[in-house]
Design a binder for these strands. Structure first.
Lengths: 209, 209
DNA sequence: TAATAAGTTGCACGCACTGCAAGTTTGACC
DNA sequence: GGTCAAACTTGCAGTGCGTGCAACTTATTA
Protein backbone atom coordinates (compact mmCIF):
# COMPACT_ATOMS: atom_id res chain seq x y z
CA UNK A 1 0.00 0.00 0.00
CA UNK A 2 2.59 2.54 1.11
CA UNK A 3 0.47 5.62 1.47
CA UNK A 4 3.15 8.18 2.23
CA UNK A 5 3.81 11.77 1.36
CA UNK A 6 7.20 11.78 -0.29
CA UNK A 7 7.71 15.23 -1.62
CA UNK A 8 9.88 13.94 -4.45
CA UNK A 9 8.07 13.81 -7.82
CA UNK A 10 4.38 14.62 -7.68
CA UNK A 11 3.11 12.33 -10.43
CA UNK A 12 -0.48 11.56 -11.07
CA UNK A 13 -0.48 8.92 -8.36
CA UNK A 14 0.69 11.31 -5.67
CA UNK A 15 -1.79 13.89 -6.74
CA UNK A 16 -4.66 11.46 -6.59
CA UNK A 17 -3.68 10.29 -3.14
CA UNK A 18 -3.61 13.84 -1.85
CA UNK A 19 -6.95 14.52 -3.47
CA UNK A 20 -8.51 11.44 -1.96
CA UNK A 21 -7.15 12.27 1.47
CA UNK A 22 -8.36 15.84 1.20
CA UNK A 23 -11.78 14.71 0.00
CA UNK A 24 -12.06 12.36 2.95
CA UNK A 25 -11.10 14.90 5.58
CA UNK A 26 -13.34 17.52 4.00
CA UNK A 27 -16.28 15.16 3.89
CA UNK A 28 -15.59 14.01 7.41
CA UNK A 29 -15.44 17.54 8.76
CA UNK A 30 -18.53 18.66 6.89
CA UNK A 31 -20.61 15.69 7.97
CA UNK A 32 -19.36 15.92 11.54
CA UNK A 33 -20.42 19.56 11.69
CA UNK A 34 -23.77 18.79 10.13
CA UNK A 35 -24.83 15.77 12.10
CA UNK A 36 -22.55 15.71 15.11
CA UNK A 37 -19.35 13.65 15.18
CA UNK A 38 -20.95 10.64 16.80
CA UNK A 39 -23.73 10.38 14.29
CA UNK A 40 -21.47 10.11 11.29
CA UNK A 41 -20.52 6.69 10.02
CA UNK A 42 -17.45 5.78 8.06
CA UNK A 43 -19.75 4.58 5.34
CA UNK A 44 -21.26 8.03 4.91
CA UNK A 45 -17.87 9.69 4.80
CA UNK A 46 -16.57 7.25 2.24
CA UNK A 47 -19.74 7.65 0.23
CA UNK A 48 -19.38 11.43 0.23
CA UNK A 49 -15.75 11.16 -0.87
CA UNK A 50 -16.74 8.56 -3.44
CA UNK A 51 -14.44 5.80 -2.31
CA UNK A 52 -15.08 2.45 -0.69
CA UNK A 53 -15.16 2.01 3.04
CA UNK A 54 -12.12 -0.17 2.77
CA UNK A 55 -10.21 2.62 1.12
CA UNK A 56 -11.15 4.96 3.93
CA UNK A 57 -9.33 2.67 6.30
CA UNK A 58 -6.33 2.63 4.02
CA UNK A 59 -5.95 6.32 4.76
CA UNK A 60 -7.13 6.56 8.37
CA UNK A 61 -6.91 3.93 11.04
CA UNK A 62 -9.73 5.60 12.96
CA UNK A 63 -12.80 7.50 11.96
CA UNK A 64 -11.75 10.34 14.23
CA UNK A 65 -8.46 10.83 12.43
CA UNK A 66 -10.31 11.85 9.31
CA UNK A 67 -12.31 14.42 11.24
CA UNK A 68 -9.23 15.75 13.01
CA UNK A 69 -7.42 16.02 9.72
CA UNK A 70 -4.08 16.62 11.36
CA UNK A 71 -1.25 18.02 9.36
CA UNK A 72 1.83 15.81 9.79
CA UNK A 73 3.97 18.71 8.67
CA UNK A 74 3.51 20.51 11.96
CA UNK A 75 5.46 17.97 13.96
CA UNK A 76 8.24 17.95 11.39
CA UNK A 77 8.52 21.71 11.59
CA UNK A 78 8.58 21.61 15.37
CA UNK A 79 11.36 19.05 15.49
CA UNK A 80 13.30 21.02 12.92
CA UNK A 81 12.98 24.10 15.08
CA UNK A 82 14.35 22.17 18.04
CA UNK A 83 17.33 21.13 16.01
CA UNK A 84 18.13 24.48 14.50
CA UNK A 85 17.41 26.76 17.43
CA UNK A 86 20.31 28.60 19.09
CA UNK A 87 21.64 26.84 22.16
CA UNK A 88 20.70 29.62 24.53
CA UNK A 89 17.06 29.62 23.43
CA UNK A 90 14.81 28.83 26.40
CA UNK A 91 12.87 25.58 25.94
CA UNK A 92 9.48 26.92 26.90
CA UNK A 93 9.98 29.77 24.50
CA UNK A 94 10.56 27.26 21.76
CA UNK A 95 7.33 25.52 22.64
CA UNK A 96 5.62 28.87 22.58
CA UNK A 97 6.96 29.65 19.14
CA UNK A 98 5.92 26.27 17.82
CA UNK A 99 2.41 26.57 19.15
CA UNK A 100 1.91 30.09 17.91
CA UNK A 101 3.12 28.93 14.53
CA UNK A 102 0.46 26.28 14.31
CA UNK A 103 -2.12 28.59 15.78
CA UNK A 104 -1.46 31.28 13.21
CA UNK A 105 -1.83 28.79 10.44
CA UNK A 106 -5.07 27.40 11.77
CA UNK A 107 -6.54 30.84 12.23
CA UNK A 108 -5.54 31.96 8.77
CA UNK A 109 -7.19 28.87 7.34
CA UNK A 110 -10.34 29.66 9.26
CA UNK A 111 -10.21 26.11 10.52
CA UNK A 112 -9.72 27.00 14.14
CA UNK A 113 -13.25 27.97 14.95
CA UNK A 114 -14.90 25.18 13.00
CA UNK A 115 -12.70 22.25 13.88
CA UNK A 116 -11.64 23.65 17.21
CA UNK A 117 -15.10 23.95 18.62
CA UNK A 118 -16.07 20.62 17.17
CA UNK A 119 -13.15 18.97 18.88
CA UNK A 120 -13.54 20.68 22.23
CA UNK A 121 -17.23 19.91 22.26
CA UNK A 122 -16.73 16.21 21.77
CA UNK A 123 -14.72 14.28 24.33
CA UNK A 124 -14.10 11.45 21.96
CA UNK A 125 -12.52 13.72 19.38
CA UNK A 126 -10.51 15.55 22.00
CA UNK A 127 -9.08 12.32 23.27
CA UNK A 128 -8.14 11.17 19.83
CA UNK A 129 -6.46 14.46 19.25
CA UNK A 130 -4.50 14.00 22.43
CA UNK A 131 -3.74 10.44 21.59
CA UNK A 132 -1.99 11.53 18.45
CA UNK A 133 -0.56 14.56 20.21
CA UNK A 134 1.11 12.22 22.64
CA UNK A 135 3.21 10.64 19.99
CA UNK A 136 4.29 14.12 19.06
CA UNK A 137 4.93 15.02 22.67
CA UNK A 138 7.05 11.96 23.13
CA UNK A 139 9.25 12.89 20.21
CA UNK A 140 9.46 16.49 21.31
CA UNK A 141 10.34 15.43 24.85
CA UNK A 142 13.09 13.21 23.60
CA UNK A 143 14.52 15.97 21.44
CA UNK A 144 14.34 18.45 24.30
CA UNK A 145 15.85 16.04 26.80
CA UNK A 146 18.78 15.66 24.48
CA UNK A 147 19.16 19.44 24.46
CA UNK A 148 18.89 20.20 28.14
CA UNK A 149 19.97 16.89 29.61
CA UNK A 150 17.15 16.70 32.12
CA UNK A 151 14.48 14.21 31.05
CA UNK A 152 12.02 15.07 33.78
CA UNK A 153 12.13 18.76 33.13
CA UNK A 154 11.99 18.18 29.38
CA UNK A 155 8.93 15.98 29.63
CA UNK A 156 7.32 18.36 32.06
CA UNK A 157 7.83 21.34 29.79
CA UNK A 158 6.38 19.60 26.78
CA UNK A 159 3.44 18.04 28.56
CA UNK A 160 2.51 21.14 30.53
CA UNK A 161 2.69 23.16 27.34
CA UNK A 162 0.23 20.69 25.88
CA UNK A 163 -1.95 21.06 28.94
CA UNK A 164 -1.81 24.84 28.54
CA UNK A 165 -3.06 24.51 24.98
CA UNK A 166 -5.99 22.42 26.05
CA UNK A 167 -6.87 24.80 28.84
CA UNK A 168 -6.65 27.72 26.45
CA UNK A 169 -8.92 25.97 23.96
CA UNK A 170 -11.40 25.14 26.66
CA UNK A 171 -11.46 28.68 28.02
CA UNK A 172 -11.61 30.11 24.55
CA UNK A 173 -14.67 28.01 23.91
CA UNK A 174 -16.33 29.39 27.03
CA UNK A 175 -15.45 32.99 26.24
CA UNK A 176 -14.94 33.24 22.48
CA UNK A 177 -14.59 37.04 22.52
CA UNK A 178 -11.23 36.84 24.22
CA UNK A 179 -8.51 35.99 21.69
CA UNK A 180 -7.05 32.58 22.30
CA UNK A 181 -3.49 33.81 21.90
CA UNK A 182 -3.94 36.07 24.87
CA UNK A 183 -5.18 33.26 27.10
CA UNK A 184 -2.36 31.09 25.89
CA UNK A 185 0.25 33.72 26.69
CA UNK A 186 -0.91 34.13 30.24
CA UNK A 187 -0.93 30.37 30.67
CA UNK A 188 2.65 30.21 29.48
CA UNK A 189 3.65 33.01 31.82
CA UNK A 190 2.21 31.01 34.69
CA UNK A 191 4.01 27.89 33.57
CA UNK A 192 7.28 29.72 33.26
CA UNK A 193 7.19 31.47 36.60
CA UNK A 194 5.28 28.89 38.57
CA UNK A 195 1.60 28.14 38.87
CA UNK A 196 1.73 28.30 42.64
CA UNK A 197 4.72 29.83 44.43
CA UNK A 198 3.09 29.08 47.76
CA UNK A 199 3.45 25.34 47.20
CA UNK A 200 4.71 23.82 50.43
CA UNK A 201 4.19 20.14 51.03
CA UNK A 202 4.24 19.63 54.76
CA UNK A 203 6.96 17.08 55.45
CA UNK A 204 5.67 16.38 58.95
CA UNK A 205 2.14 15.33 58.21
CA UNK A 206 2.87 13.74 54.86
CA UNK A 207 6.15 11.97 55.31
CA UNK A 208 5.38 8.35 54.52
CA UNK A 209 5.43 8.08 50.75
CA UNK B 1 -30.41 -0.46 36.91
CA UNK B 2 -28.90 2.20 39.17
CA UNK B 3 -25.52 0.70 39.90
CA UNK B 4 -24.31 3.12 42.52
CA UNK B 5 -22.36 2.96 45.73
CA UNK B 6 -24.62 4.48 48.33
CA UNK B 7 -22.85 3.99 51.59
CA UNK B 8 -26.15 3.79 53.44
CA UNK B 9 -27.13 0.20 54.34
CA UNK B 10 -24.87 -2.49 52.94
CA UNK B 11 -27.46 -5.18 52.35
CA UNK B 12 -26.97 -8.31 50.37
CA UNK B 13 -27.63 -6.47 47.13
CA UNK B 14 -24.89 -3.93 47.70
CA UNK B 15 -22.48 -6.64 48.70
CA UNK B 16 -23.13 -8.65 45.58
CA UNK B 17 -22.66 -5.65 43.37
CA UNK B 18 -19.34 -4.88 44.95
CA UNK B 19 -18.31 -8.49 44.59
CA UNK B 20 -19.30 -8.62 40.97
CA UNK B 21 -17.48 -5.39 40.24
CA UNK B 22 -14.40 -6.59 42.05
CA UNK B 23 -14.51 -9.93 40.28
CA UNK B 24 -14.71 -8.19 36.93
CA UNK B 25 -11.82 -5.81 37.56
CA UNK B 26 -9.71 -8.61 39.00
CA UNK B 27 -10.39 -10.86 36.06
CA UNK B 28 -9.79 -8.01 33.64
CA UNK B 29 -6.46 -7.11 35.23
CA UNK B 30 -5.30 -10.70 35.44
CA UNK B 31 -6.18 -11.49 31.85
CA UNK B 32 -4.73 -8.23 30.59
CA UNK B 33 -1.44 -9.02 32.30
CA UNK B 34 -1.44 -12.55 30.99
CA UNK B 35 -2.33 -11.97 27.39
CA UNK B 36 -1.81 -8.29 26.80
CA UNK B 37 -4.63 -5.77 27.08
CA UNK B 38 -5.48 -5.85 23.39
CA UNK B 39 -5.83 -9.60 23.25
CA UNK B 40 -8.46 -9.83 25.95
CA UNK B 41 -12.09 -9.88 24.97
CA UNK B 42 -15.01 -8.78 27.07
CA UNK B 43 -16.36 -12.27 26.67
CA UNK B 44 -13.33 -13.76 28.38
CA UNK B 45 -13.49 -11.29 31.23
CA UNK B 46 -17.18 -11.91 31.78
CA UNK B 47 -16.61 -15.62 31.58
CA UNK B 48 -13.87 -15.47 34.19
CA UNK B 49 -16.07 -13.40 36.49
CA UNK B 50 -18.97 -15.73 35.80
CA UNK B 51 -21.44 -13.18 34.54
CA UNK B 52 -22.93 -12.52 31.13
CA UNK B 53 -21.35 -10.15 28.67
CA UNK B 54 -24.38 -7.94 28.97
CA UNK B 55 -23.83 -7.66 32.68
CA UNK B 56 -20.26 -6.60 32.10
CA UNK B 57 -21.55 -3.61 30.21
CA UNK B 58 -23.93 -2.80 33.01
CA UNK B 59 -20.88 -2.16 35.15
CA UNK B 60 -18.41 -0.71 32.66
CA UNK B 61 -19.13 1.30 29.57
CA UNK B 62 -15.80 0.31 28.10
CA UNK B 63 -13.62 -2.74 28.32
CA UNK B 64 -10.73 -0.57 29.39
CA UNK B 65 -12.56 0.73 32.41
CA UNK B 66 -12.62 -2.72 33.88
CA UNK B 67 -8.88 -3.06 33.42
CA UNK B 68 -8.23 0.39 34.84
CA UNK B 69 -10.39 -0.49 37.81
CA UNK B 70 -10.62 3.09 38.98
CA UNK B 71 -11.91 3.73 42.44
CA UNK B 72 -14.69 6.34 42.29
CA UNK B 73 -14.05 7.07 45.93
CA UNK B 74 -10.83 8.88 45.10
CA UNK B 75 -12.54 11.73 43.34
CA UNK B 76 -15.06 12.08 46.13
CA UNK B 77 -12.27 12.29 48.67
CA UNK B 78 -10.44 14.87 46.58
CA UNK B 79 -13.47 17.09 46.24
CA UNK B 80 -14.14 16.77 49.94
CA UNK B 81 -10.59 17.85 50.64
CA UNK B 82 -11.09 20.91 48.46
CA UNK B 83 -14.17 21.80 50.37
CA UNK B 84 -12.78 21.28 53.84
CA UNK B 85 -9.27 22.64 53.43
CA UNK B 86 -8.28 25.82 55.25
CA UNK B 87 -8.57 28.91 53.10
CA UNK B 88 -4.87 29.65 53.21
CA UNK B 89 -3.92 26.22 51.91
CA UNK B 90 -2.04 26.56 48.63
CA UNK B 91 -3.89 24.90 45.71
CA UNK B 92 -0.95 22.98 44.34
CA UNK B 93 -0.25 21.66 47.79
CA UNK B 94 -3.79 20.35 47.91
CA UNK B 95 -3.27 18.58 44.61
CA UNK B 96 -0.07 17.17 46.00
CA UNK B 97 -1.83 15.83 49.06
CA UNK B 98 -4.58 14.31 46.98
CA UNK B 99 -2.20 12.58 44.65
CA UNK B 100 0.02 11.26 47.40
CA UNK B 101 -3.09 9.95 49.07
CA UNK B 102 -4.03 7.89 46.06
CA UNK B 103 -0.45 6.91 45.47
CA UNK B 104 -0.04 5.57 48.99
CA UNK B 105 -3.16 3.54 48.62
CA UNK B 106 -2.12 2.09 45.29
CA UNK B 107 1.31 1.20 46.59
CA UNK B 108 -0.05 -0.44 49.71
CA UNK B 109 -2.33 -2.51 47.53
CA UNK B 110 0.62 -3.53 45.43
CA UNK B 111 -1.36 -2.46 42.41
CA UNK B 112 0.90 0.35 41.32
CA UNK B 113 3.57 -1.66 39.63
CA UNK B 114 1.27 -4.13 37.98
CA UNK B 115 -1.46 -1.83 36.74
CA UNK B 116 0.83 1.15 36.32
CA UNK B 117 3.19 -0.54 33.94
CA UNK B 118 0.33 -2.11 32.09
CA UNK B 119 -1.29 1.25 31.57
CA UNK B 120 1.82 3.15 30.61
CA UNK B 121 2.79 0.44 28.18
CA UNK B 122 -0.48 0.56 26.32
CA UNK B 123 -1.56 3.78 24.62
CA UNK B 124 -5.13 2.67 24.47
CA UNK B 125 -5.31 2.14 28.20
CA UNK B 126 -3.52 5.37 28.92
CA UNK B 127 -5.98 7.14 26.72
CA UNK B 128 -8.92 5.68 28.59
CA UNK B 129 -7.33 6.55 31.88
CA UNK B 130 -7.10 10.13 30.77
CA UNK B 131 -10.59 9.95 29.42
CA UNK B 132 -11.90 9.31 32.86
CA UNK B 133 -9.30 11.50 34.55
CA UNK B 134 -10.51 14.46 32.57
CA UNK B 135 -13.96 14.27 33.99
CA UNK B 136 -12.32 14.37 37.37
CA UNK B 137 -10.06 17.22 36.36
CA UNK B 138 -13.02 19.22 35.18
CA UNK B 139 -14.74 18.86 38.51
CA UNK B 140 -11.58 19.63 40.41
CA UNK B 141 -10.93 22.69 38.25
CA UNK B 142 -14.41 23.97 38.87
CA UNK B 143 -14.06 23.50 42.60
CA UNK B 144 -10.68 25.18 42.61
CA UNK B 145 -11.82 28.07 40.43
CA UNK B 146 -14.53 28.71 42.96
CA UNK B 147 -11.88 28.84 45.66
CA UNK B 148 -9.30 31.06 44.05
CA UNK B 149 -11.48 32.98 41.60
CA UNK B 150 -9.13 32.56 38.66
CA UNK B 151 -10.41 29.93 36.21
CA UNK B 152 -7.34 29.88 34.03
CA UNK B 153 -4.97 29.38 36.91
CA UNK B 154 -7.27 26.81 38.46
CA UNK B 155 -7.49 24.77 35.29
CA UNK B 156 -3.80 25.11 34.75
CA UNK B 157 -2.94 23.87 38.22
CA UNK B 158 -5.18 20.85 37.95
CA UNK B 159 -4.19 19.91 34.43
CA UNK B 160 -0.47 20.41 34.95
CA UNK B 161 -0.67 18.34 38.11
CA UNK B 162 -2.24 15.63 35.98
CA UNK B 163 0.53 16.02 33.45
CA UNK B 164 3.10 15.73 36.24
CA UNK B 165 1.54 12.44 37.30
CA UNK B 166 1.76 11.04 33.83
CA UNK B 167 5.35 12.15 33.44
CA UNK B 168 6.21 10.62 36.79
CA UNK B 169 4.60 7.33 35.79
CA UNK B 170 6.42 7.33 32.50
CA UNK B 171 9.77 8.04 34.11
CA UNK B 172 9.12 5.56 36.84
CA UNK B 173 8.54 2.94 34.21
CA UNK B 174 11.86 3.74 32.60
CA UNK B 175 13.79 3.74 35.88
CA UNK B 176 11.81 1.59 38.33
CA UNK B 177 14.51 1.74 41.00
CA UNK B 178 13.84 5.38 41.69
CA UNK B 179 10.74 5.77 43.89
CA UNK B 180 7.90 7.40 42.05
CA UNK B 181 7.11 9.73 44.94
CA UNK B 182 10.52 11.29 44.58
CA UNK B 183 10.08 11.95 40.89
CA UNK B 184 6.65 13.34 41.55
CA UNK B 185 7.93 15.71 44.20
CA UNK B 186 10.55 17.20 41.96
CA UNK B 187 7.97 17.60 39.22
CA UNK B 188 5.72 19.49 41.61
CA UNK B 189 8.59 21.69 42.71
CA UNK B 190 9.18 22.60 39.08
CA UNK B 191 5.51 23.31 38.55
CA UNK B 192 5.36 25.48 41.63
CA UNK B 193 8.41 27.56 40.93
CA UNK B 194 8.30 27.54 37.16
CA UNK B 195 9.44 25.02 34.59
CA UNK B 196 11.44 27.62 32.73
CA UNK B 197 12.25 30.98 34.33
CA UNK B 198 14.09 32.01 31.18
CA UNK B 199 10.88 32.03 29.18
CA UNK B 200 10.85 35.16 27.09
CA UNK B 201 8.67 35.31 24.02
CA UNK B 202 10.29 37.83 21.74
CA UNK B 203 7.66 40.45 21.00
CA UNK B 204 9.63 41.84 18.07
CA UNK B 205 10.01 38.74 15.95
CA UNK B 206 6.78 37.10 16.99
CA UNK B 207 4.28 39.92 17.25
CA UNK B 208 1.50 38.90 14.88
CA UNK B 209 -0.63 36.48 16.82
C1' DT C 1 3.75 -3.23 -24.94
C1' DA C 2 4.82 -6.15 -21.36
C1' DA C 3 6.01 -6.57 -16.54
C1' DT C 4 5.71 -4.78 -11.99
C1' DA C 5 4.42 -1.90 -8.33
C1' DA C 6 0.83 0.78 -6.00
C1' DG C 7 -3.99 1.43 -4.94
C1' DT C 8 -8.73 0.10 -4.74
C1' DT C 9 -12.42 -2.72 -3.75
C1' DG C 10 -15.60 -6.45 -1.97
C1' DC C 11 -16.11 -10.00 1.29
C1' DA C 12 -15.96 -12.26 5.48
C1' DC C 13 -14.93 -11.94 9.98
C1' DG C 14 -14.33 -10.65 15.05
C1' DC C 15 -15.28 -7.67 18.49
C1' DA C 16 -17.29 -3.61 21.11
C1' DC C 17 -21.26 -1.78 22.57
C1' DT C 18 -26.65 -0.75 22.80
C1' DG C 19 -31.76 -1.25 23.28
C1' DC C 20 -35.30 -4.20 24.37
C1' DA C 21 -37.99 -7.58 26.46
C1' DA C 22 -37.95 -11.14 28.95
C1' DG C 23 -36.40 -13.49 33.43
C1' DT C 24 -34.68 -13.72 38.44
C1' DT C 25 -33.38 -11.90 42.93
C1' DT C 26 -33.86 -8.70 46.74
C1' DG C 27 -35.92 -5.64 50.03
C1' DA C 28 -40.02 -3.67 52.08
C1' DC C 29 -44.38 -3.76 53.82
C1' DC C 30 -48.34 -6.18 55.50
C1' DG D 1 -45.20 -16.29 55.25
C1' DG D 2 -47.05 -13.80 51.22
C1' DT D 3 -47.17 -9.98 47.93
C1' DC D 4 -45.40 -6.50 45.24
C1' DA D 5 -42.24 -3.32 43.10
C1' DA D 6 -37.78 -2.15 42.26
C1' DA D 7 -33.20 -3.66 41.21
C1' DC D 8 -30.39 -6.65 38.73
C1' DT D 9 -29.20 -10.22 35.22
C1' DT D 10 -29.54 -12.24 30.91
C1' DG D 11 -30.19 -13.44 25.87
C1' DC D 12 -31.03 -11.69 21.51
C1' DA D 13 -30.85 -8.92 17.67
C1' DG D 14 -28.64 -5.30 15.65
C1' DT D 15 -25.22 -1.37 14.42
C1' DG D 16 -20.81 0.03 13.56
C1' DC D 17 -15.72 -0.10 13.71
C1' DG D 18 -11.66 -2.01 12.10
C1' DT D 19 -8.68 -5.95 9.81
C1' DG D 20 -6.91 -9.67 6.71
C1' DC D 21 -7.23 -11.52 2.33
C1' DA D 22 -7.68 -12.14 -2.45
C1' DA D 23 -9.06 -10.31 -6.47
C1' DC D 24 -9.09 -6.36 -9.64
C1' DT D 25 -7.69 -1.80 -11.77
C1' DT D 26 -4.47 1.89 -12.59
C1' DA D 27 0.06 4.09 -12.85
C1' DT D 28 5.07 3.55 -13.66
C1' DT D 29 9.18 1.73 -15.58
C1' DA D 30 11.81 -0.50 -19.02
Amino acid sequence: MEIEDNAAPPGRRERKKRETRAALTAAALRLALEKGPDNVTVEEISEAADVSVRTFFNYFSHKEHAILGRNPEHLARALERFRSAPAEQSPLTMMWLIIHDVLRELISEGELSRRGELIMGNPNLLYHLMLSSFDDERQLSAALAERIGDPLRAMLIVSTAGAACRVAMELHKQTPDRPIGEVLDRAFQLLAQGVDPAFAPDPDTQKGS
